[in-house]
C-alpha cells in the first residue's frame, strides 16, 4: 500500500508544482515507484514542468468519469524509471473532482505505487481540499514572507481538522515544512524571515530549505524537474529534502552566505 503525499501551501506561486515535480522525481530516482498527480483542474501545469505536455492524452477527470482507465492516462517519464505523471484536466467544471472519484483513483494508484504525490492547487477550495483530504503526509511549501507563512498556518489547520485522518480519528497527517526561495544573504541583512523564524511560527519539522536559484526557472523552461540538475544548488537542496523524507540525516546546505575575504566584504556586492 503506497503513501499519499500532498504538496500544498495555500498561497500561489510559492513553488508547489516545482517542488512536486522535484520530490516525485527524487523519490523515483531513489528506487520507489512514484506517480505525481496534478489536482489543479482547469489550470494544468505540472505536465509542463515535467516536460510531458505533448504526451497528455487522457487526464485525471477522464479517469474519474470512466472515459479512460488509469493505465491509459498515466504518462511514463522517459528519464527516470518508475516515475509517472497523471495530468489535470483543462475542464472548467469545478465539481469534476468528486470525493468518491478521487478516492477511487487514489486507492487504485496506491496499489500500484510506493508514493502518490499530489500537487495541490493554490487556495483552499475544492481541488486543494481534495488533494489534502486523503493525505498520509503533507509537504507544506512556504516562502519566507508574511502572506505565505500565514497561509501555510491556515493550511496546517485544515490538515489537522478536515483531512480524512483527522475525521476518522487516526494518526494525524505527518507535516513537513519545505522553505523555498530562501536568500541567506537577505536573511543576514535582516530583510527576510530566517528558517528559524518560520520554524518557530509554524512549529513543524523542517524537510528542507531551497535557495532562491536561477536553476529553477532554467529547469522549468526546459521541462526538466530541477532535481535532475545535479550541479545546481536548488537541485542538490531538493535531493537533500528527498533523502530526509526517506529517513536519512542530511545537514542543511545553502542556508549560509559563503564567506568572503576582507576585500570582498568591502567592495563586493
Amino acid at each position: 500500500m503506497g503513501k499519499i503525499v500532498v504538496v500544498t501551501s495555500g498561497k500561489g506561486g510559492v513553488g508547489k508544482t516545482t517542488s512536486s515535480a522535484a520530490l516525485a522525481t527524487g523519490l523515483a530516482r531513489a528506487g520507489h515507484r512514484t506517480v505525481v498527480v496534478d489536482f489543479d483542474v482547469g489550470l494544468r501545469n505540472l505536465d509542463l514542468v515535467m516536460g510531458c505536455e505533448r504526451r497528455v492524452v487522457y487526464d485525471f477527470v477522464n479517469v474519474i468519469n470512466g472515459d479512460a482507465n488509469l493505465n491509459q492516462a498515466l504518462i511514463r517519464d522517459k528519464r527516470v524509471d518508475g516515475l509517472y505523471v497523471l495530468a489535470a484536466s483543462q475542464t472548467r467544471d469545478k465539481d469534476a473532482l468528486t470525493s468518491e472519484g478521487v478516492e477511487r483513483v487514489l486507492d487504485e494508484l496506491r496499489d500500484q505505487f510506493d508514493y502518490v504525490v499530489c500537487d495541490s492547487p493554490a487556495g483552499i477550495e475544492r481541488g486543494a481540499l481534495m488533494a489534502m483530504y486523503f493525505a498520509d503526509d503533507a509537504i507544506v511549501v512556504t516562502n519566507p514572507e508574511v502572506s505565505s507563512v500565514r497561509d501555510s498556518d491556515r493550511v496546517l489547520g485544515i490538515l489537522s481538522s478536515k483531512s480524512r485522518r483527522a475525521e476518522q480519528g487516526g494518526e494525524p497527517v505527518k507535516e513537513h515544512l519545505l522553505l523555498t526561495r530562501y536568500s541567506p544573504d537577505r536573511v543576514k541583512r535582516g530583510e527576510m524571515l530566517s528558517l528559524e523564524d518560520v520554524g518557530e511560527i509554524l512549529s513543524i519539522d523542517l524537510l528542507g530549505v531551497i535557495p532562491e536559484s536561477q536553476a529553477v526557472l532554467n529547469a522549468s523552461n526546459a521541462g526538466i524537474p530541477v532535481i535532475l540538475e545535479d550541479e545546481s544548488d536548488a537541485g542538490q537542496a531538493y535531493a537533500d529534502g528527498v533523502a530526509r523524507f526517506l529517513g536519512q540525516e542530511r545537514p542543511l546546505r545553502f542556508t549560509d552566505i559563503p564567506r568572503k575575504g576582507f576585500f570582498g566584504r568591502l567592495f563586493g556586492s
Binding site: D153, D197, E200
Partner: peptide, 16 residues
C-alpha cells in the same frame, strides 16, 4: 524588517 514581520506573524497566527 524581518523582525517586524516575525512579530506581526506571531500575533496574527496566535489569534487565528
Amino acid at each position: 524588517t524581518a523582525s517586524v514581520a516575525k512579530e506581526r506573524l506571531q500575533i496574527l497566527v496566535a489569534r487565528e
